[in-house]
Design a protein around this nucleic acid. Structure first.
Length: 400
DNA sequence: AGACCTTTGAAGCTT
DNA sequence: AAGCTTCAAAGGTCT
């Protein structure tokens, strides 16, 4: 069995956190892209040294945590930004776009166009405005009125513009109560009708107008959702019309994906969504703050309209309606005694047997490192096992 | 047929 | 309060 690195062992344990994991992933991605040239190897070694130094410095670890905190808090920053608080760009995290970490054994760049999705290539017409239209016009599920710079209140004359008289459907109003006045003023544009969204009567909004957030339980996923919700003694319910599902409003990235997916597919001749989404994720990080702000603003309005349409709806309503995900199963498979949470940070060095087992780790990275030992250089191998779940520990093994 | 993959962000839940 | 979990879209892939 590999021998746990003794040098700075406790320090390594102190970094059994996701923060360091992500940063390292970024380093590894760089390394991967550079194809292990001699210089890159030197850089890699250097990075390892830096990592060791970081690990030895609790304050540095805190810095890494705060850096991630900055990333996580970006949406709020955008809210501030969007709320009219004109801020100068600090040129920090968005000056040099950060990319999600992709450890060595993750999907290689063959998925990427011309074998590279470098930040520079990512900038190819990422958010191009066209023909004077709002760059997000194709995404807008609402009428243009909703995207006026004015405050996010719904216009009062929208119902007049649409000529659609809205009233609550009695069979649905019990499930999705609507605001007394606001709903009738909503004017969904054709953006409400995704190409593949065949909204039947059950997919109609209580107002009588289909809404992309309402999905009839005909899809495979939704069908399953209701299957899961049916209790054994409620057989009679099968004959009753199933409730339409109100989907969550799309967040900024989802809106971005929706717009850019076709473009990426065309550019990359890829079809697999998982790979496409990886590219889109990188491109999302490559966007400037202003470019992202468009989508944050759109998402904010989407949420507002969704709230107006379905004031009683909660994201909780859709909880547990999907099949359990693999990650969850993975964690379940590692319940006691190999619980993912039983990591080094939790049990310490004296109880290493309680740590996560190697099988729970998803990615493995190999590092070469030259260290001075007694005046001579000696190559040491470091295997870093990256956790498959955020709450799992990272482990570093050393071979000499 | 239906889960999985893969991404980020929002919201809910848990500790 | 912080951290974790779930879901939102998409469509090829896999079981």
């Amino acid at each position: 069995m590999p021998q746990l690195s003794s040098g700075g062992g406790d320090d390594l344990g102190a970094n059994d956190e996701m923060i360091a994991f992500k940063d390292e992933g970024e380093q590894e991605e760089k390394i991967q892209e550079n194809a292990f040239t001699e210089r890159d190897l030197a850089d890699l070694k250097s990075s390892l040294v830096n990592e060791s130094e970081i690990n030895q410095s609790p304050s540095a670890a805190v810095g890494a945590r705060s850096q991630q905190g900055e990333q996580r808090g970006f949406a709020e920053k955008h809210r501030e930004h969007l709320d009219g608080v004109s801020k100068h760009q600090d040129g920090g995290m968005y000056k040099t776009p950060t990319y999600p970490g992709y450890p060595f054994l993750m999907l290689p760049d063959p998925y990427l166009p011309n074998s590279s999705v470098s930040p520079s290539s990512n900038k190819v017409s990422v958010v191009q405005q066209s023909h004077g239209m709002h760059p997000l016009t194709s995404l807008l599920p609402y009428s243009n009125e909703h995207f006026s710079p004015s405050p996010p209140h719904l216009p009062t004359d929208m119902s007049q513009k649409t000529g659609v008289h809205r009233h609550q459907s009695q069979d649905l109003s019990g499930y999705y109560s609507l605001p007394p006045g606001g709903v009738g003023q909503i004017t969904p544009s054709m953006g409400w009708f995704p190409h593949s969204l065949m909204l039947g009567p059950s997919g109609m909004h209580p107002t009588g107008i289909p809404h992309p957030a309402i999905v009839p339980p005909t899809g495979k996923q939704d069908h399953d959702q209701y299957d899961r919700s049916i209790k054994p003694q409620e057989v009679k319910r099968e004959k009753e019309p199933k409730k339409p599902v109100i989907k969550k409003p799309l967040n900024a990235f989802m809106l971005y994906m929706k717009e850019m997916r076709a473009k990426v597919i065309a550019e990359c001749t890829l079809k697999e969504s998982a790979a496409i989404n990886q590219i889109l994720g990188r491109r999302w990080h490559a966007l400037t703050r202003e470019e992202q702000a468009k989508y944050y603003e759109l998402a904010r309005k989407e949420r507002q309209l969704h709230m107006q349409l379905y004031p009683t709806w909660s994201a909780r309503d859709n909880y547990g309606k999907k099949k359990r995900r693999k990650r969850e199963k993975l964690q379940d498979s590692n319940t006691d005694p190999g619980s993912p949470k039983k990591c080094r940070a939790r049990f310490g060095l004296n109880q290493q047997t309680d740590w996560c087992g190697p099988s729970t780790y998803l990615y493995i990275s190999l590092f070469l490192k030259n260290l001075n030992q007694n005046g001579t250089k000696k190559k040491r191998l470091f295997f870093i096992l990256f956790p498959a779940a955020p709450n799992m520990c990272r482990q570093i093994y050393e071979f000499t």
